[in-house]
Simulated assay, not measured.
Amino acid sequence: MEAMSPTRWGPPIDVLPYFSKEEQALMTLLGALTDEDWTRPTMCAGWTVKDVAAHLLGDKVGRLSRGRDGHAADAPRPGEAFPRFIDRINEEWVVACRRLSTDVLLTMLYEFMGQTTEYWAQLDLDAFGGPVSWAGDEPAPRWLDAARDYSEFWVHHVQIREALEHTPLEAEYAEPIADTFVRALPHTLRDVDARVGKQVGYTVTGQGRWYARRERDGWVLDRGAPPSRTPLATVTTDLDTFWRLCTRNTTSTDGVRTTGDENVCAQLLTMTAIIV
């Protein structure tokens, strides 16, 4: 991927090499499930393995319909908050897909395999598109939206594997996850008042280090350790804890290490990479 213009979200992420491989691993898994496997409950409250697979289908066809085909999707009802709107349409889709057999669901997933990759590959990822809501309200670079897409697929794939008590998804598929979710850091810090130049650090062990720096118009993200010897606050955790915290799959902070301003650390631990 060519160098892209710097933004407050830090350097670009290239997730295109991951889409097809993750999708193929998921379909290999789903294609071998028994009837009992499809009905197992997942960590998504009220959703079975089949429901999560149907949700993934909805993510894929929704992206293609809106982005590739220019289809005008539903909008929130008058007075309906955006997170509530997303929860509602997701649930409506999953409930409707319960009418489908697993064979029909698998056929539809196979039909759309590869099309998400093709969609993102033909776009100028340097350009700005719509917002990535958990990273801010303003237009975001398309590479961030693509990374958001991939992270969504990865999280639900992991949830399915855990519900099945299956072997974990190979580590290579998780390579962009921490780097994607940490792009929510500037938005998380938006209400933290600090003087220009102050820095906040975030480390995900084995994955990387990032820091946010306060500038006149807000916080800006970059990779690496904070250049300052005395950052305002730092958080260190492992990838498993990090992605679960960011997606609200856990509230436990066991294994999380913090230094510096306690209020800022507490704010850092509210970081989310889903619509809530």
Score class of each variant (00 low, 15 high):
residue 2 E to C: 07
residue 4 M to V: 03
residue 5 S to N: 12
residue 6 P to W: 03
residue 7 T to D: 06
residue 11 P to R: 12
residue 16 L to V: 00
residue 19 F to H: 08
residue 19 F to T: 01
residue 20 S to D: 14
residue 25 A to C: 08
residue 35 D to M: 01
residue 36 E to T: 15
residue 36 E to P: 06
residue 36 E to S: 14
residue 39 T to G: 14
residue 43 M to R: 11
residue 45 A to I: 10
residue 47 W to Y: 10
residue 49 V to A: 09
residue 49 V to Y: 05
residue 51 D to I: 02
residue 54 A to R: 01
residue 57 L to E: 09
residue 61 V to M: 07
residue 64 L to T: 05
residue 64 L to C: 09
residue 71 H to C: 10
residue 71 H to E: 14
residue 75 A to V: 15
residue 77 R to E: 15
residue 81 A to I: 00
residue 81 A to V: 01
residue 83 P to V: 07
residue 83 P to E: 10
residue 84 R to G: 00
residue 84 R to P: 00
residue 85 F to N: 05
residue 87 D to C: 04
residue 93 W to G: 08
residue 97 C to W: 02
residue 99 R to S: 05
residue 99 R to H: 04
residue 101 S to Q: 12
residue 103 D to C: 08
residue 104 V to Y: 12
residue 105 L to I: 11
residue 108 M to N: 05
residue 109 L to R: 09
residue 110 Y to L: 01
residue 110 Y to S: 00
residue 111 E to L: 07
residue 114 G to M: 09
residue 114 G to F: 10
residue 115 Q to R: 14
residue 120 W to M: 04
residue 122 Q to L: 11
residue 123 L to Q: 15
residue 127 A to K: 10
residue 131 P to Q: 10
residue 133 S to G: 06
residue 135 A to Q: 07
residue 143 W to R: 02
residue 153 F to V: 01
residue 156 H to G: 03
residue 158 V to I: 13
residue 159 Q to P: 01
residue 162 E to R: 15
residue 163 A to D: 11
residue 163 A to G: 14
residue 165 E to W: 04
residue 169 L to C: 12
residue 173 Y to L: 11
residue 177 I to K: 05
residue 179 D to N: 13
residue 182 V to G: 13
residue 183 R to K: 15
residue 183 R to S: 11
residue 185 L to R: 03
residue 192 V to N: 12
residue 193 D to I: 11
residue 195 R to V: 12
residue 196 V to A: 06
residue 196 V to G: 00
residue 198 K to D: 13
residue 198 K to F: 10
residue 200 V to N: 03
residue 201 G to V: 04
residue 202 Y to H: 12
residue 206 G to R: 07
residue 208 G to I: 01
residue 209 R to S: 15
residue 211 Y to H: 12
residue 211 Y to Q: 03
residue 213 R to Q: 07
residue 214 R to C: 04
residue 214 R to P: 00
residue 216 R to P: 02
residue 219 W to F: 03
residue 221 L to C: 07
residue 221 L to N: 06
residue 221 L to F: 10
residue 222 D to L: 06
residue 225 A to Y: 10
residue 227 P to F: 04
residue 231 P to A: 07
residue 231 P to F: 08
residue 234 T to R: 13
residue 234 T to E: 15
residue 235 V to N: 07
residue 239 L to W: 05
residue 239 L to N: 02
residue 242 F to L: 03
residue 244 R to Q: 13
residue 245 L to G: 02
residue 252 S to F: 00
residue 256 V to R: 05
residue 259 T to G: 08
residue 260 G to P: 11
residue 262 E to W: 01
residue 264 V to Q: 05
residue 264 V to A: 06
residue 272 T to N: 05
residue 273 A to M: 12
